[in-house]
Amino acid sequence: MAQYRWLITGASSGQGAEIALAALRHGYHVIGTARNVVKAKEDYPNLEALGGVWLDLDVTSDDTQAIVERAVKEHSINVVVNNAGYGLRGVLEDLSMKQIRAQMDTNFFGAVAVTKGAIPTFRERGGGIIVMISSASGFTGTPSQSMYSASKFALEGLSESLAEELAPFGIRVLIAELGAYRTPFQSAVDKPSNIISEPYKGTIADKTAQRITAGHGKQAGDPAKAAEAIIEVVTGECRGVNLRHVLRLPLGKDAVQRARSKIESFTRDIDSCKQLAEWASFDTSWDGYPPLESSADA
């Protein structure tokens, strides 16, 4: 069995902690990052008890890339999981630019810095795996969470491009799109009564926020199973034996249903617009993007 050595950001709570502990139980080496290592050790003593190591890291700090690059080299890390993030609730009109930038700094630019820290060593070694923890809201936008969705959409666009860029070097990218999972994630999100302003009361944004809040603690998604699924797809073992080629891994029945609905809607739009879309071109033989052969097809 290959030895996988993991670095997992945001391992001090929720899904990140579940992935870290599951990887350790599989016998893998794990570095879990946290903004507050002292608190992380108190909340999750099992990480060190199982042989894991904590690393002090705020993914929004200027030295994130350098810290990750050093850790990847020193600990021979070959799997990096970009899990650190949080959910910002509220309609766009009501959100301040400070809130918006903070959301993107953590959920997107933090993942960019971590990934940039891992790539050079992975490329030089000829391999590695980068796991992006995304969301069903990164494939289908969610009213009342427009900026959270935007941060995950950005992460997915980055990941699609990276998968092509890094494939020649043996580096794999996997996007895990989680649906509603029973973690503390939603408990840290502002409640609808605090963030939905009067003009939006009763709209789809308000109703969606109310529904998400009411469902906290009752979500169908099992975070331990999600962690196991990610590990199996990364390693190509058990239920993941035939899934090492996938770019996207939707997790949860709701994630699958939302993805299918999005694809059906997108297909209807393409079919409806096909004639107009193809008309809006010069009469030339060049087919444009994407390239004729992608690394995914090779």
Rank of each mutant, 00 (worst) to 15 (best):
E156T: 06
S187H: 12
Q186R: 05
A150L: 03
P199M: 04
A154R: 08
I171R: 13
Y181Q: 04
V173Y: 10
E156C: 07
A163Y: 00
S144V: 05
M147T: 13
P168R: 09
L162R: 06
L158F: 15
K152T: 01
V173I: 15
I204P: 00
G179L: 03
G179N: 04
R172P: 10
S144W: 15
Y181K: 05
D190P: 00
P192V: 13
R172Y: 02
E164T: 07
S144D: 12
R182Q: 14
S144T: 12
V189A: 12
L178Q: 00
L158R: 02
G179T: 02
K152N: 04
D190H: 09
A180Y: 01
L155V: 05
A154L: 05
F169K: 07
G138V: 03
A176T: 12
S135M: 06
A150T: 09
S193R: 11
A188I: 00
G157N: 04
A205H: 06
Q186Y: 13
E177G: 01
G202W: 05
S161E: 07
T140S: 11
S146C: 15
L178I: 04
G202K: 06
S135R: 02
I195P: 05
T203F: 01
L174H: 09
A180P: 01
I175T: 06
G202N: 02
L158V: 10
G141H: 08
E156F: 04
G202H: 09
S161T: 15
S159G: 10
S197V: 11
N194E: 14
E198D: 15
I171K: 13
L166C: 11
L166V: 13
E156Y: 09
Q186L: 14
S144C: 12
P184L: 02
G170I: 08
S146V: 15
T203Y: 05
